[in-house]
């Protein structure tokens, strides 16, 4: 059992959620309410990670993060170490490939709020911030929660992109999914099985917690 890999995966998933939570609220809200030029294009680009093979997506990120590309070069100049094959690189990649999982449910959550309810909030004197805190977030919460759970679970299981961008450096980029693959390659079926079982357990627990929370939210609303 590779505990280091498990904790690395959990750390990666937690960071991804922390970054995507505010991002999905802001972007989901904009996509739900606003109409603007190129909105369709933005939505399509955000959905790309869903349809591209992870290795293809990982390959492009690898090139983008490398020293030869502006993003990678800028990172190296600023932080003094390369973005590829580092934990930070994994976090950035993870945030990008989780965008559709985080944005879609959040956007649907905000879209489900009736327009006149939002207008009523404004006509009650609630400015944009108070409206977000007191009215919109409580109503869109099931969507946002679903978004975060999907992101967390998806990050734990992602394999192709992590391998392309991070490689398999123990303690830095070797996640639980990579570790399981390594064990299988080494014919250590018992180790792979134990780790897989742990992953199944964590996933079941996460989903159960989500269901319990959304049932509570549902009761609060009805």
């Amino acid at each position: 059992m590779d505990w280091q890999a498990l904790f690395l995966s959990l750390r990666l998933a937690a960071w991804t959620v922390v970054i995507l939570l505010p991002l999905s609220i802001v972007m989901g809200r904009v996509l739900a309410y606003r109409r603007f030029m190129g909105k369709g294009l933005v939505e399509a680009v955000v959905m790309l990670p869903l349809i591209l093979p992870p290795t293809v997506f990982g390959f492009y990120l690898l090139v983008l993060f490398g020293r030869g590309a502006p993003v990678g070069a800028l990172w190296q100049d600023f932080f003094g170490h390369p973005l590829v094959f580092s934990f930070e690189g994994l976090v950035v990649a993870s945030v990008i490939f989780n965008l559709p999982f985080a944005l879609q449910p959040a956007q649907r959550g905000f879209e489900a709020i009736a327009t006149d309810v939002r207008e009523a909030a404004a006509c009650c004197g609630l400015g944009p911030w108070r409206s977000l805190w007191q009215i919109e977030l409580p109503l869109a919460w099931p969507g946002v929660l679903t978004a975060m759970v999907l992101t967390f679970a998806h990050t734990l299981g992602e394999f192709g992109i992590v391998l392309m961008v991070g490689g398999s450096i123990p303690g830095e980029t070797r996640t639980i999914a990579i570790a399981i693959y390594d064990r299988v390659q080494a014919f250590d079926y018992a180790g792979a099985g134990a780790m897989s079982a742990v992953l199944v357990g964590i996933s079941l627990f996460t989903i159960a917690v989500t269901y319990a929370l959304s049932a509570r939210v549902g009761r609060r609303l009805s």
């Binding site: 006149d116 404004a122 609630l126």
Partner: peptide, 28 residues
């Protein structure tokens, strides 16, 4: 903007805040 205009509006379908009690709707 609407929130800076001191208006009271009763909407056609009321547009009450569904997650808040009647009193909290008024207090909002």
């Amino acid at each position: 903007p609407p929130h800076q205009r001191q208006v009271g509006v009763v909407f056609q379908n009321y547009a009450l805040f569904p997650h808040l009690s009647a009193a909290r709707n008024v207090m909002a």
